[in-house]
């Protein structure tokens, strides 16, 4: 055993023995134990404000660049695009096309989620189901849903059926995969607690697994939503929705053919705005009311 030696020249030190004390009472702290942050810091804390600043800067850059370029065929100014957007919405039938697109989207999304729920429940209750899900997901998840469009057209013809088919394909695997992952990460304690209360099978899935896995499920739904939205617009660029009534993608394609560049931008802007709305209003609200309130997700 090695002995650590005191550095030569320094005396061995011992702390002095000090007197004890015990206070009979403590001072009442003055009122400002907690005080609000100054106004500018609270404004900077607001996510909405910071994001609006980003959007405003982007808009200013666009407007400035387009004015400097002065070529409305290639790059119309933001103000022109806004005018085109408003007039298309009011008189150009853009609103009807958005409705058409949303209708297809909602149908495809709903069918995809229902299918994902069925597969995931099967996968989380049986080992074989789990193998089926993993194999199918690894096969179909990397496959771009639009690549199935030629097949879909062959099977379902021009129209809504083909679009719903490709959307279901884009939603199903992403949602099933993240839901299954979520179920697998639910703690054993929580499962045992649920079984202790007499839950089993489907009631255990509905009352314990789904709420406990909600952060992953919501993440999957968001990814599924984005996939569906992209797939649909891409598919619509190839053909309309049904019997000449095109959707938003078709609106963009038509206007490009007519060299109405401002309208093309207006269509794109619509795609972005709808995506932004669903993400930052619908999904945010669901998150705020559920996973954040329950402390499962922080930011």
């Amino acid at each position: 055993m090695t002995v650590i030696e005191q550095t030569t020249g320094l005396p061995l030190a011992l702390p002095p023995v000090r007197g004890e004390f015990e206070l009979p009472s403590v001072i009442e702290p003055s009122a400002d134990v907690e005080r609000p942050l100054p106004l500018h810091e609270r404004i900077l804390q607001s996510t909405v404000f910071r994001r609006l600043v980003v959007v405003a800067v982007l808009a200013a850059v666009w407007e400035g660049y387009a004015t400097w370029l002065d070529n409305p065929l290639m790059m119309p100014r933001l103000s022109d695009v806004v005018v085109a957007l408003v007039s298309s919405l009011v008189s150009g039938g853009l609103f009807a096309r958005i409705l058409m697109t949303m209708k297809v989207l909602v149908i495809g999304y709903a069918v995809g989620i229902a299918a994902a729920a069925a597969i995931t429940i099967l996968a989380s209750t049986t080992r074989f189901g789990s193998d089926v899900l993993s194999t199918l997901t690894s096969m179909f998840n990397p496959l771009p849903a639009v690549a199935l469009l030629p097949l879909a057209l062959l099977w379902f013809g021009l129209g809504m059926g083909s679009l719903v088919f490709v959307i279901v394909n884009s939603v199903l695997w992403a949602v099933a995969l993240s839901t299954h992952t979520g179920f697998q990460s639910v703690s054993e304690t929580l499962r045992m607690a649920g079984r202790c209360f007499g839950l089993k099978g489907l009631s255990l899935v509905a009352e314990i697994l789904i709420p406990a896995a909600l952060p992953s499920i919501l993440a999957g739904l968001k990814i599924g939503w984005a996939f569906a939205w992209r797939t649909l617009i891409a598919a619509e660029l190839v053909f309309g929705v049904s019997s000449g009534q095109g959707g938003l993608g078709w609106f963009i394609y038509e206007n490009r053919n007519n060299l109405e560049t401002a309208n093309v931008f207006a269509g794109l802007l619509c795609v972005i705005l709808i995506g932004l709305f669903v993400e930052s209003v619908i999904f945010r609200t669901i998150e705020r009311r559920t996973v954040r309130r329950w402390g499962m997700q922080k930011f």
């Binding site: 703690s187 304690t189 929580l190 045992m192 607690a193 314990i208 709420p211 406990a212 909600l214 559920t290 329950w294 402390g295 499962m296």
Partner: peptide
């Protein structure tokens, strides 16, 4: 009653 604190339903 389990040892782990996560036995309560967070929702």
């Amino acid at each position: 009653v389990f040892q782990e604190f996560d036995q309560l339903l967070p929702w």
